[in-house]
Nucleic acid binder design. Structure first.
Length: 228
DNA sequence: AATAGAGCCAACCGCCACTAA
DNA sequence: GTTAGTGGCGGTTGGCTCTAT
């Protein structure tokens, strides 16, 4: 990418010195007021550019390694639910950026997803069953992400869930006691499903219906990251 | 060894939403 | 209620690297 100058602002790849200056400035001023921060830092970069560099590369706790199979499964599943809501998907994957996920999707997962979607479409015609609490429990033995049932049960301990003091406990009880299989109120999209215990589900990731898939993702993620 | 094509990924662009004046 | 400034998001670009021929 060429190092073009637009007026007084630098563009193109960041230099190591620029990274250091930006990191130091963010350390002092915090992650806000990017335009002012850019000016104060002395960097000839736009606020937008500084923000992007920080968010996608310099921010602490970013994972720079390969996307794991678990992460890939989550990306696939959430993309199926939400489409190209990369920032939303990224919030479910700590340490990953929306840009990283978007790039990974385009280069690795697009074809995979299309193939999976085609499979799902065909199997949907044969399997329309909605999981009830009972068959949810039964399917616990089938594992998540191909893990053994013992590994799975470490993650998904129903008893522990039921003893949890979560504010959503009552909704779980309500759901179970109703035996209708599904909570009456749909989870709104976005943040409000984070950290919830709304769906004590143990469905397989490769579940055949859209609704099952949706439920399993929330549950798996919520169980792994109850305080995220 | 040279070249073309494909894939990857950092960075930019343009739009939209939010907020303060 | 309006407007300007700012930040955030998704889409796109283009340079670099790898691989096949």
């Amino acid at each position: 990418m060429a190092n073009r100058d637009t007026g007084n602002l630098r563009r193109g790849p960041w230099l190591e010195e620029e990274d250091e200056i930006l990191t130091a400035t963010v350390g002092v001023l915090g992650e806000k007021h990017w335009d002012a921060l850019a000016k104060q830092s002395g960097l000839r970069r736009s606020g937008k550019s500084c923000r992007l560099r920080w968010m996608n590369y310099l921010r602490p706790n970013l994972k720079h390694g390969e996307i794991t199979q678990e992460e890939e499964a989550i990306i696939l599943d959430l993309h199926k639910q939400w489409g190209s809501k990369w920032s939303k998907i990224a919030k479910r994957l700590p340490g990953r950026t929306d840009n990283e996920i978007k790039n990974y999707w385009r280069s690795h997962l697009k074809k995979k997803s299309e193939a999976q979607y085609a499979d799902t479409e065909s199997s949907n015609k044969q399997d329309k069953a909605i999981p009830t609490y009972n068959n949810v429990i039964e399917s616990e033995n089938e594992g998540i992400f191909g893990k053994s049932s013992s590994e799975t049960s470490e993650i998904c301990n129903m008893n522990a869930l039921m003893e949890n003091e979560s504010p959503y406990e009552s909704r779980i009880s309500e759901w179970i006691s109703s035996s209708s299989g599904w909570p009456s109120s749909e989870v709104k999209d976005d943040e409000d499903c984070m950290g919830t215990y709304t769906y004590p589900c143990f469905c397989q990731l490769e579940s055949s219906s859209h609704e099952e898939t949706k439920m399993s993702t929330h549950s798996v993620w919520d169980l792994w990251n109850p305080i995220w």
